[in-house]
Simulated scan of single mutants.
Amino acid sequence: MSSYCDYAPGNPIHAHYHDREYGFPVDDEAVLFERMILEINQAGLSWELMLKKREGFRAAYDGFDVDRVAAYGERERTRLLNDAGIIRNRLKVNAAIVNAQRIVELRRDYGSFKGWIDAHHPLDKAAWVKLFRKTFKFTGGEIVGEFLMSTGYLPGAHRESCPIYQEIARLSPPWMSEGWQKSAKKTKK
């Protein structure tokens, strides 16, 4: 079975994302929010399209500034639905705005989006999906799994034989933590 590690290296569209972002731990809230928006918008489409439209998304969603997106009203929603630089899907646009509002709410108890994720780590994929569905909009199993894999919370972004795997391992992503390893072993029993 082919993996991202087979075709992304050297690819003009996928190489940078594969080599410098995919699976690397993320601390920055705007980057976490960007990944969430891109994963939501990728549903039913290709990741290549998301990478091609990435700059359009960045411009349309004010650099993925959570506070600005959370404050969007009808005028901004209409602007987004008319923006050819992004995916113009009402459900996905609404999810971005509602999810930004939820992140703002989560900050009260967890300090940040990352703080919320870290507070629930480690969980297996099924538990993560349940938690995300309860908390956010448009977050099914594939979206949650890819989001968490792409940000270092779940394994699987790279094969062990991929040179990038070793780079990520040196950064000690959350899924390589002792707590996650114990949780994974418990789930397998």
Rank of each mutant, 00 (worst) to 15 (best):
C5S: 14
D6A: 07
Y7W: 13
A8Q: 03
N11T: 01
I13N: 14
H16Q: 13
Y17S: 04
H18T: 05
Y22W: 13
G23Y: 01
P25G: 02
D27F: 07
D27G: 07
D28R: 15
A30I: 10
L32K: 08
L32N: 04
E34W: 12
I37T: 11
I37K: 14
I37W: 10
L38G: 06
N41W: 01
G44D: 12
G44V: 10
L49C: 08
L49H: 08
M50L: 08
L51T: 00
K52E: 15
K52V: 11
R58C: 07
R58I: 05
Y61V: 12
D62A: 15
D62E: 08
D62C: 07
D65W: 13
V66T: 08
D67R: 10
R68F: 00
R68I: 01
A70R: 05
Y72W: 03
E74Y: 15
R75V: 15
R77N: 01
T78P: 02
G85C: 03
I87C: 15
I87E: 14
N89S: 06
L91T: 12
K92C: 07
N94Q: 12
A95I: 00
I97D: 01
V98I: 09
V98A: 08
A100K: 08
A100Y: 04
Q101Y: 02
V104I: 05
E105L: 13
R107I: 04
Y110L: 06
G111V: 03
S112T: 13
W116Q: 01
A119D: 11
P122E: 05
K125L: 11
A126I: 07
V129P: 14
F132Y: 13
R133Y: 03
K134E: 09
G140P: 00
G141Y: 08
G141W: 10
G141K: 09
E142W: 06
E142R: 10
E146R: 14
E146G: 15
M149D: 07
S150Y: 05
T151A: 00
G152V: 03
H158Y: 11
H158C: 08
S161I: 14
Q166P: 03
E167S: 12
A169V: 10
R170S: 12
P174R: 13
W180N: 07
W180Y: 12
T187Q: 06
